[in-house]
Simulated assay, not measured.
Amino acid sequence: MRRSVVPVVALLMVCVLAACGGSGKKKRSRDARPTIATTAGKVAPADRDEDAGPARVDASPSSTRTPRRKVPALTCADLSDAELGSSGVRYRDYPNPLRLRDGRWTGNGATVLLQKPCATGDLDGDGAVDAVGAVMLDSGGSGRFWSLVVWRNVDGQPRYVAVTDVGDRTPVQSIRIADKRATVVQLTRSPGAAMAELDLRRTAVHRLTGARFPAISHTDVPYTP
């Protein structure tokens, strides 16, 4: 009886050791991995699965977009040495561009003067600050021909693009740019009035369309000098 008990006890001990795991190592569960804080677009080594391949890096368009280069704004002072006219859009009847010097050009008995009314702002929606100035041509006689001239901002420099004639002896008083439009106030005359008579104050709204700068609306009120 005592001899049969020993083999049974030995068999039970073998079963217990096999159930507990002789190696003493436990298999790590993938669902029990520790969480490690990461920075945007990077994967921490502890958060990678050995079977998942190389870590993925965020390459969304927002992370690779090149920022727009900021262009210096034009100022009214920049116009004093600008050009008037171009090969495609003449200033008055001059075949070649006229270069202003300190806001003035003279030639063939005529004088072109950059006047004080001026405004800056975005006229074409490209985000750069453009400029509109009033220019007066003194032809040497009785005429004083006023124009509105548009200079676009090209890499921070004024480039002539458009001109609109606004009359003889009809001075521009002010220019304001907002919402890609220029509001211009000038003195003018009613139909039938003498050339020396100014009896209306006109407020006109101009908009740049390609190489044109037409008035798209205007209102007149009586003016008394």
Results as ranks from 00 to 15, higher is better:
7 P>H: 06
30 R>K: 11
50 E>C: 09
130 D>C: 05
69 R>L: 09
219 T>E: 12
95 P>V: 10
194 A>M: 13
137 L>N: 04
113 L>R: 05
101 R>L: 02
85 G>H: 05
163 V>H: 02
202 R>Y: 02
156 G>I: 10
219 T>L: 07
99 R>N: 08
184 V>R: 07
196 A>T: 15
164 T>P: 00
75 T>Q: 10
138 D>E: 13
85 G>S: 06
82 A>F: 01
224 T>Q: 11
61 P>F: 07
76 C>A: 10
221 V>N: 00
122 D>S: 05
74 L>S: 03
74 L>W: 05
177 I>L: 08
189 R>H: 08
155 D>E: 14
40 A>E: 07
34 P>Y: 04
203 T>D: 00
183 T>H: 06
140 G>W: 06
211 A>N: 14
114 L>C: 04
76 C>P: 01
116 K>M: 03
145 F>P: 00
116 K>D: 10
114 L>I: 04
146 W>Q: 13
95 P>E: 13
78 D>T: 04
176 R>S: 15
24 G>Q: 14
146 W>F: 12
67 P>D: 09
63 S>E: 11
193 A>M: 12
81 D>R: 09
108 N>L: 11
203 T>G: 02
189 R>V: 12
155 D>C: 02
65 R>N: 00
105 W>E: 03
117 P>I: 13
203 T>I: 08
214 P>M: 09
180 K>R: 15
205 V>N: 00
64 T>P: 00
128 A>P: 00
21 G>I: 10
166 V>P: 02
74 L>A: 06
131 A>Y: 06
130 D>S: 06
70 K>D: 12
168 D>F: 09
201 R>V: 10
60 S>H: 02
189 R>L: 13
35 T>R: 10
93 D>M: 11
113 L>A: 07
193 A>S: 15
15 C>W: 09
123 L>A: 04
80 S>F: 03
62 S>G: 01
60 S>Q: 03
145 F>L: 15
222 P>M: 04
99 R>L: 13
37 A>F: 06
107 G>I: 08
164 T>A: 13
106 T>A: 10
4 S>Y: 06
70 K>F: 01
60 S>F: 01
124 D>G: 02
76 C>S: 07
